[in-house]
Design a protein around this nucleic acid. Structure first.
Lengths: 259, 259
DNA sequence: CGGACTTGTCTAGTTAAATAGACAAATGGA
DNA sequence: TCCATTTGTCTATTTAACTAGACAAGTCCG
C-alpha cells in the first residue's frame, strides 16, 4: 500500500499558520479552501468583496487555479459572485437562530427572522417500534409507530429534516393533520393536544449523509447537527420521539437557561 | 473552466440507496467511505467484525483497493484492526455524553464515563474586550480581558478545546488556579466563587479548523460542535464567556429539560 | 490436510486534481 | 485614453486518486 504511508505521515511540518490546507488528506485542496472561505465569511472576516485570486492563492499556499476552483464552487453555491475586471463579491448568507427550550416550536422559533416558514411531509410509514424508541415513548417494544419524515424551510431555504415517531394507536391522524396545517403544533391541536413540552435533547454533529443532502439541498462534505428529542404532555408523558437534522451552516441552536 | 461543469452536474442519477459516495465532489472516495464506516459503527450497525473488503466494495460501488484505503485510514485512526486471513475487527470507540444544563461542569459531566479527566491550560493572554464579548459580560468595550485556551481530556482522549474570557481585573489569578487545580470549578472556588450557573448556550457545527485539529488530534474533514456560552453567578451576573469546540465524533451533548 | 475465505502485495493503466505559464477581456481610476 | 488590476480562458505537465486483475499469505473449519 503505497499511498497509505503518505497518509500516515500527513502531519508534515509547520507550514503557514493562517491559510492551512493539508495535502493528501482525502479532501481536495479546492474544497478545503472553499470550506475555509465559507467559514471566514460566516465569521464576518471579509466585507462585501473578497481578496483577489492571487492574494488568496498566496494565503493558502496554492496555485491560483486551485483557488479559482474553490471560488467556482462557492459561486455555484450562491455565496459568491465573480465579476470580470472587478473582483469577487460576497452575497451574504443569512443564518437563522433556532431556540431550544422546554417549549420548542419550529415556526415560533424562527418568527421575526423569516417571512415564510413551512413544514412539508415527505414520507409516512407505519413500523414496529425499535426498543430504544419504545422505551423513550414508554410503549412496549414492537408497538406500532407512526413514522413521519418532514422537511422544514424558512424563506424557501431548507433548514432541517426530521424523522418523527408517534404512537400509531393514539395519533393515527397526525400525517393528515400535518399535511393540512403545515405545522406540528397545529396538527397536535387538531388532535386535542393543546400544549406539549420538550423533555430531553441529545445533540451531535457529523457529515451529512445522502438522504440529508437530498432533503436539505447540501453539498457533499456539508455538516449537520443531529438532535434526538422527546416531546411530552405537560404532565411529562412522552408522545413524540424526533430525530432532527439541521444544516449546520444555516442555523445556530440557542439554548436558553433561564435564571 | 472545464471541471466546474462536471462539479455542477454532480447529482448524476439514482445509484444505490445504501452506500452512497459521490464522485467529483472534492472529497476522495476513500475518505467518504471511511466517514460512512465510522458513522455506521457509531450507529452500532456492525458487531465486532466488519464485512469483507469485497462486500464493502460492492456496497459502495467502488474498487476493493479504494475500500482498503478507507480501512487503512480507520486503522491508522485506531478504530479498526485488520488481521490477514481473518478479517477486519472493530475496536469500539467510546462516545462520551456531556450534559448541558444550568449547572454544567466538565468533570462532573463525564463522571462515571471515564476514569481520568483533566483540563490543560495551553495559552494565557490579556486582551482588550471585543464589543460582543464585553456586552455579554456587561463590561465596557475595551476592558481588559483574561483569555485562557484550554484542552479537556477524558481517558487521555481530547474531548474539547475552549477559549475562555474573564474580567482581568477580577479574575487575574484564574490562569494559575486552573493550572494548579486542573478544573474550572475548583479554580473558581480558589477565587471565592463557590457556585455558578450557565446563562445561555449558542450551538453550531462545522468542519474543524487547523487550530482545533491540532488541539483535538483530529483529521482534516473532522466535525466540531461549537458552543458559545455565558456563565454567571447565581444572581445572574455574568463572569465568563466561553467558546468550546467539541470533537463531534467523540461526544454527544445532552440537553435535559426538567419538567 | 485441503479448500474456502480472508487480508496483503504487486503491476499496470485511467481519470481527476493541482501546478505552471501565457494571454485575453473587462473594470475603474488617473 | 492609458494603465494597473481584476477575472476568464487556454495549453501543457505533474502528481494523486481510482480501477483492474493476479497472486501470495494468512485463518478457520470440516
Amino acid at each position: 500500500m503505497q499511498h497509505d504511508k503518505l497518509v500516515t505521515g500527513e502531519r508534515v511540518s509547520g507550514e503557514k499558520s493562517s491559510g492551512a490546507v493539508e495535502r493528501r488528506s482525502g479532501v481536495a485542496l479546492w474544497r478545503q479552501i472553499a470550506d475555509a472561505i465559507r467559514q471566514s465569511i460566516a465569521d464576518g472576516e471579509f466585507e462585501g468583496m473578497m481578496p483577489g485570486e492571487i492574494a488568496l492563492a498566496a494565503r493558502f499556499g496554492v496555485n491560483r487555479h486551485t483557488v479559482r476552483a474553490a471560488i467556482a464552487a462557492l459561486v455555484e453555491e450562491g455565496l459568491l459572485e465573480s465579476v470580470q475586471g472587478r473582483g469577487t463579491l460576497i452575497r451574504r448568507q443569512t443564518r437563522f437562530t433556532f431556540p431550544i427550550t422546554r417549549r420548542t416550536r419550529f415556526s415560533e422559533g424562527l418568527a421575526g427572522q423569516s417571512r415564510d416558514r413551512d413544514i412539508r411531509l415527505v414520507a409516512e410509514e407505519r413500523i414496529a417500534a425499535d426498543p430504544a424508541i419504545a422505551a423513550a415513548l414508554t410503549l412496549e417494544p414492537g408497538a406500532e409507530l407512526l413514522k413521519l419524515t418532514l422537511v422544514s424551510r424558512a424563506d424557501g431555504v431548507p433548514v432541517s429534516t426530521s424523522i418523527n415517531y408517534f404512537d400509531a394507536a393514539r395519533f393515527s391522524g397526525m400525517a393528515a393533520a400535518v399535511r393540512e396545517t403545515g405545522s406540528i403544533t397545529r396538527a397536535y391541536a387538531m388532535l386535542g393536544v393543546t400544549d406539549y413540552i420538550r423533555l430531553t435533547t441529545d445533540l451531535t454533529a457529523r457529515l451529512a449523509d445522502e438522504r440529508e443532502r437530498l432533503m436539505l439541498d447540501l453539498k457533499p462534505g456539508a455538516v449537520v447537527m443531529e438532535a434526538r428529542a422527546v416531546n411530552a404532555l405537560p404532565d411529562g408523558a412522552p408522545i413524540q420521539y424526533a430525530v432532527t437534522c439541521f444544516a449546520a451552516d444555516r442555523v445556530t441552536l440557542k439554548l436558553d437557561m433561564p435564571v
